[in-house]
């Protein structure tokens, strides 16, 4: 990380605590500002390191909210979260969230390579610029997703499947240990689906922890070690 590093948040980046689970959630509840109904109610969960877990549930069950809570996009009203045994914020560089509908402005004049490189910003913090090794990591990720030919293309010119692969490439570039993937196989073409599945398997062999929200658990059962079922903002079963 180098001697000169000004982190984006008030916590310094901390190392994981040995033996701590990748994600530990205790009794969290959360709701959106303009809604009275809580989107999550007293959810408790522990995801061990290196596991691949499916988060299953119908629309509105709270899958995306759970991911947003863990990635600091929605605030919890009660409860506690630890990531790799560290308090919230200290290990956020080890978490990456791939949303179902990204907030990316695809019309912004930016190349695919530049967007993928934003995945390295968390390691740079304020005032530092990209280095050769950051570019190397970005090219590796583009190659893993078979999109190195798109590197210099403007993001406005990408198809839906290509956009999904670019966002996964950015997630890989961040080199996170806990990946929260919201319906990564939904509404993508067969080629993208195959590549994403290959990447998920590769992440598993590298010891990364993945929590994947899915509607189609029955079809994808072989991809996961276990499943957590959510309904109406509450956990109903964990298998």
């Amino acid at each position: 990380m180098g001697r000169f590093f000004i982190s984006y948040c008030h916590h310094r980046h901390s190392h994981p605590k040995p033996e701590a689970p990748a994600l530990w959630i205790q009794d969290i509840s959360a709701s959106y500002d303009l809604e009275n109904r809580p989107a999550l109610r007293n959810v408790s969960l522990s995801i061990s390191r290196g596991s691949s877990v499916a988060l299953v549930g119908p629309n509105g069950a709270g899958k995306s909210t759970l991911f947003k809570v863990v990635s600091n996009l929605v605030k919890v009203s009660s409860g506690e979260i630890k990531i790799f045994g560290q308090p919230f914020g200290a290990c956020h560089h080890r978490v990456v969230y791939l949303p179902q509908r990204s907030s990316v402005d695809w019309q912004f004049p930016l190349s695919v390579l530049d967007l993928v490189l934003t995945g390295r910003y968390v390691y740079l913090g304020w005032l530092r610029s990209l280095k050769k090794k950051d570019y190397k990591k970005a090219w590796e990720a583009l190659s893993n997703l078979s999109i190195e030919n798109l590197a210099h293309r403007q993001i406005a010119q990408l198809s839906g499947g290509q956009q999904q692969r670019v966002l996964i490439a950015r997630a890989l570039v961040q080199d996170a240990d806990l990946l929260l993937l919201d319906e990564p196989l939904n509404a993508v073409d067969a080629q993208t689906r195959e590549i994403v599945q290959r990447v998920l398997n590769h992440l598993k062999t590298k010891g990364k922890t993945t929590l994947v929200a899915t509607h189609y658990f029955n079809k994808e059962e072989n991809l996961y070690d276990s499943a957590v079922h959510l309904k109406d903002g509450e956990i109903c079963t964990a298998s």
Binding site: S7, Y8, C9, H11, S71, N72, L73, G89, H92, H93, V95, V96, Y97, P99, S102, S103, V104, D105, F108, L110, L115, T118, Y121, V122, L124, W126, L127, S129, L130, R170, Q174
Partner: peptide, 22 residues
Amino acid sequence: LCHKEFQLFCVDKDYARTIGIN
């Protein structure tokens, strides 16, 4: 000095927030 942060803020505000940028 804040070029990359402003750029990320414009292109993907939520991602900026997830990596700790206020």
